[in-house]
Amino acid sequence: MRKKYLVIIYSISIFVFFVLYLSLGKNKVYTTQDNIGKKIAEVQLNYFDIDGEFNTKEISNFKFTLLNFWASWCGPCRKEHKYLVELSKNSNLKIVGVNFKDEKKNALKFLNEMGNPFSILTKDPEGKKSVNFGIYGIPETILINNELKILKKYVGPINSKDVKEIEKIINK
């Protein structure tokens, strides 16, 4: 009788310790990767410097779209900007920018200095519309196909590795 209990208790403990051991190696940073595979929300975004609105449904007109959330006050956005400029040369891809909680003056200065990779530039001065895309910090970048499906989501600045990944998908 005692032996049976001992075996049961040992097995439970081994399982618990094994799971705890596995959890040690896990990456604890939370990202909204669950959104991959979902359809992008239908949202009306104001254009950056002209009147009117861009409806995210229009993304279906393009083969691939990269939706990039950025601001002039965000340091990492500066770091990733050259990669966006690089990607903008690819004809399979349209880059739609969302200028996030920014001032127009500073944003324009930023684009003059660093180049403008955006085919379409919109703005979200209060940051509320970005909630529809699951944005919680910037920069964030979402790759969408013409069925409005989210293929990739990058939280934080994209790097050369990400650029290669994106190019591989869009050049197929």
Partner: peptide, 13 residues
């Protein structure tokens, strides 16, 4: 945090 303030406004709305 900035994020929290945004969510607060969105929930309010």
């Amino acid at each position: 945090s900035d994020f929290a303030l945004t969510i607060k406004e969105v929930v309010n709305e």
